[in-house]
Every structure is written in C-alpha cells, then in structure tokens.
Amino acid sequence: MTVTDSTAPTTGRRVRAAESLHGEIVEHLEDEALLLDDNDLMGWLQTLAEDIVYRAPVRVTREPGERSQFEPEMAHFDENGMTLFLKLMRMTQTSSAWAENPASRTRRIISNVRVYETELPDEYRVESSVLLLRSRYDDPNYDILSGRRIDRLRRVDESFKLAARTIYFDQATLGVQNLAVYL
C-alpha cells in the first residue's frame, strides 16, 4: 500500500497495545480530536510544537506499481508554525473569517492506531486512521474526509506535542469546498 511504502516506518520498536505508553498516546489523540470537534482552536494550538510541520500531500491516481501516489512538494495542507498560528488567530480573533462563520459542526473518528519508537528517545511515530464528518449550515449532506495520518508525537513533560503530521487523504479530488477545519 502506497501510504506505508512511501513513508516507511523507522526501524523503531513497535509499542504494543498492551503497553501503558500506547494507551497514553491513544488518549492524547482522542483528547486532541475532541478539542477540534469542540472548535477549541486555542486549546488545540497548545498541543502543537512550535516547529510543527503539518501537511497533506496531493494524491495522483497512478498505474499500479508506479512510484508513490503522493506528490513530494504539492500539498493541500502545507503548514508550519507561523501559518498555522496565523490561521488559528484568524479563526479566533477576527470577526470576518467567513469560511467558518458560522462554524461547521465536526466529528473526528480516530482509530487503527500504531505506535513506534524512533531514533529520538522522546519522539514517537504514531499512525492513525481518521474519519472527519463536517456539517455546514443547514445542509443535511456531510462533507466526509478519510485518510491515514502519520504523526511525530513529542513527549513534553506529562503530555505530548504534535511535532509533525502528514495526512494521506483517500481522495485524489477532495470533495470539500475548503479545508478550513483540521484533522
């Protein structure tokens, strides 16, 4: 499968589901999803590392066996700490972020979590599947986005910070009018 091919896991040991660390990380991902579901963007910002890299590469349907379906440079999301901060400030501190005014109602279902140790003792590679449902205005049809996330989660004190996230969407053409919400 291209996702795992193109982003082969580090040779780090897999953290088994029975280990308490695994449970801690799943708990963190679920807490993070709830912050976003609740539109607590400032709360979410607190969970991001300042040097975060947050991307969702463009996907191209290619012949079987060809190189990765994901573009190396071109992305739907292509954020660093500054752009994410700017966007979150726009959403929370201005009166005219019309893309999300009124705010969409969103639900994130996170599952199929795998955790690996990395070359850094305090960083983990965390894979998860995400399903985002987004309801906007009175439209009874959901925007639906699904994908696989590959995260770098950094242990900071008693909690974690998101140091990097790459979202591999399942759609080559995203069926949404914008990505003014986060996954």
Binding site: H76, F77, N80, L86, K87, S96, A97, V176, N178, L179
Partner: peptide, 24 residues
C-alpha cells in the same frame, strides 16, 4: 512560495476559503 501559496489560496488557503463559502 510553496507554503505561502497553500496557506492563502487553494484547498486550505485562508483567503480563498471565504470565497468557496460564498459561491455555493
């Protein structure tokens, strides 16, 4: 350029996101 263009226009661009909410 890669980061600024994505941040402002296109799928996740915060400028164009307002337009794509009005056109529908």
């Amino acid at each position: 350029m890669r980061i600024m263009t994505a941040a402002t226009f296109g799928t996740s661009g915060f400028v164009e996101a307002d337009d794509t909410d009005v056109w529908p």
